[in-house]
Design a protein around this nucleic acid. Structure first.
Lengths: 111, 111
DNA sequence: CCGCGATATAGCGACGTCGCTATGCGGCGT
DNA sequence: ACGCCGCATAGCGACGTCGCTATATCGCGG
């Protein structure tokens, strides 16, 4: 009956992502790692350049321990990396594709 | 010292998102709702049109109960919606911005 | 050597999601 | 009336993250 049009590729939107296990797994991992209000804002800030922990904590108006904990989660998933200098830990984005995600998020929810 | 280049605006990426509480909260909610391999694939499939549960389960090669559970999570966050017809439950995207996210995800992780 | 600033981590209880199995429920055909 | 199909949900134990507080580390200056 009626077909099952064999999934004809229409502009290919979502066609390959739907089948690729490894790809969807990595994407899900990245999304999960960023999926927290504070981490979204952290990533947005780091998008503009590296910052050290205290500066982030101040900009986010959050306790240092909390920020450090969230940075740890981002680090464990290789989304950010730290460099020590002058006693400060400067964090920067380690996954370049996060920039695309950020600009997408801004446009998406621009409303 | 050198630096702290005063945050040169490169396309203004992340500037407003970093400060807006409500916006980052909603974004985080959406990301968290999608942040699962199966749900990523579900969203990618629904990007191409509505599907009923069994078709999704078959396409994903996953038990019906699991798919239904993941659809429930997407539903609770208003990312998908269902329509009943002929005894089938047809699901479709309810948040249009998911399409931007999907196309972003495909490009991003294209590697 | 001692303390301080900067950062990281441990411990707590609470909560949501994980996959899985089993069951509930409504509609349809025989 | 009965059973089957399509779908939803409850229950299970396991696990990760939640915010928070307290403590550990490490390098530096006094």
């Amino acid at each position: 009956m009626a077909a099952r049009p064999t999934l004809r590729i229409e502009r290919a939107a979502g066609s390959e992502l739907a089948r690729d296990d490894a790809k969807s797994a990595r994407i899900a991992e990245v999304l999960k790692a960023v999926a927290h209000p504070l981490r979204v804002r952290i990533v947005a800030i780091l998008c503009r350049g590296e910052q050290h922990v205290s500066a982030l904590a101040e900009a986010l108006d959050a306790p240092q321990a909390i920020v450090s904990q969230q940075l740890r989660i981002l680090r464990l998933h290789d989304l950010v990396a730290a460099t020590r200098q002058d006693g400060f830990a400067y964090y920067r984005l380690a996954e370049p594709q996060l920039r695309s995600l950020v600009s997408c998020m801004e446009k998406c929810e621009a409303r």
